[in-house]
Design a protein around this nucleic acid. Sequence first.
DNA 1: GAAAGGTGTATGGTCTGACCATATTTGGTC
DNA 2: GACCAAATATGGTCAGACCATACACCTTTC
Lengths: 223, 223
Amino acid sequence: MRTFETVLAQIEQRIAADGLTVGDRLPGERQLAEQLGVSRSSVREALRVLETLGVVSSQVGRGPDAGAVLISRPDGTLADLLRLNLGLTTMSAREVLDTRLMIERWSAARVTSAPAAMTEALAAMDTAASPEEFVTHDVAFHVALTDAAGNRLLSAVLRALRDALVSNAVEAVRRLGHTGDLQADHRRIHAAIEAGDAAEAVEAVTAHLARAYPGLSLTQNVF
Amino acid sequence: MRTFETVLAQIEQRIAADGLTVGDRLPGERQLAEQLGVSRSSVREALRVLETLGVVSSQVGRGPDAGAVLISRPDGTLADLLRLNLGLTTMSAREVLDTRLMIERWSAARVTSAPAAMTEALAAMDTAASPEEFVTHDVAFHVALTDAAGNRLLSAVLRALRDALVSNAVEAVRRLGHTGDLQADHRRIHAAIEAGDAAEAVEAVTAHLARAYPGLSLTQNVF
DNA sequence: GAAAGGTGTATGGTCTGACCATATTTGGTC
DNA sequence: GACCAAATATGGTCAGACCATACACCTTTC
């Protein structure tokens, strides 16, 4: 086992043993190296891994906020993971969009009151001057819906897909040639959620995505 | 921006520009450092990030297989991500199990023929001598089902949940006190898939998970 | 005594150069 | 041709140095 991997294991074990949680600080790189009997390089490689996994954040300087602080931000990692692996393999747009459909249907069924971010995104889309601006708020609308469902794991997955969603959505808007139908869908979704009608909300989300991505329509009603 | 981050960006850009794919090799650490005008340490930190993301694998020695080779293995990263972030935050078992239920219902609806791995796991459970052995094959059964649905993104998510699933399942078996009902559920799922009855398969998966995890039963039929 | 400013210092970030372990390549020997 | 030993390229690790940053502390000033 490589040195930095043992360092990784020991840091992880230490986090569990000491009951460290978000906001707590790890010892400095030099101190950690001395404690574990390894070089600072190996400690740094281990910290780089933890940083990549969204578990620590390193701050330079001095004071209470400096050093390696425990965080919990899996979003960025998931996004990197997807972007890099999508580029390397032949993961299809279909797989991404199916996942999106599944998460959003699930969310629509559970959210009983539209969050502020959703209502704001809806209004912002009305005044969007370009497809890009419209899509920005469009994606924010859907992310807000999913966040409101309260499952952080699924929220993180959808947020990781964000970049892919944006490019897909821009394509869809250009293909449709206008945003009126999409915005009407959004209002229907919003209204169904505010009314607490889960079945209608699910149906509205499904219809919306079917309109934007016709290729999905084959399997959407199997549930 | 830190040096290793620019290295990261340049490597990623290079992968895209040169059309590198799985199996191709990156230049050696020393050569990369010289080309980019940075130290080997910075290159190594960047490679460590890529390795964490499941994009490269480093082999020591000499020859065609040595050096940093492009791969695409997001599973391990996702598992690390979940394990570490589950430990740090209060992500609940409910969130994990809801996600599992969603993915398995989706999969059950799409798989029209039971894969060999699923049939084998079913048989293996019959002869399992301990709860741990039973659960090993149990999880393999469910993972095989999801793999067969053909969405690698969802497969990767479920595989990342594997460790959490195992401990949950062991708990469930102990609570039930026997495995007969669970195995009967498995046969029902298997039969429904072999019969091509999607609705029955979804219902069977739902009933199975509801039996194993009673706390889930509230929202399972909202779809 | 309080405010302002300068200095000290602990932190991560980077670089250099060296050595080690490993695995292939190369070339010599029988 | 087969076998074995040396050379070599690779990642892995270490030690030590220096830099930039940002807070801590002390001195000066009013």
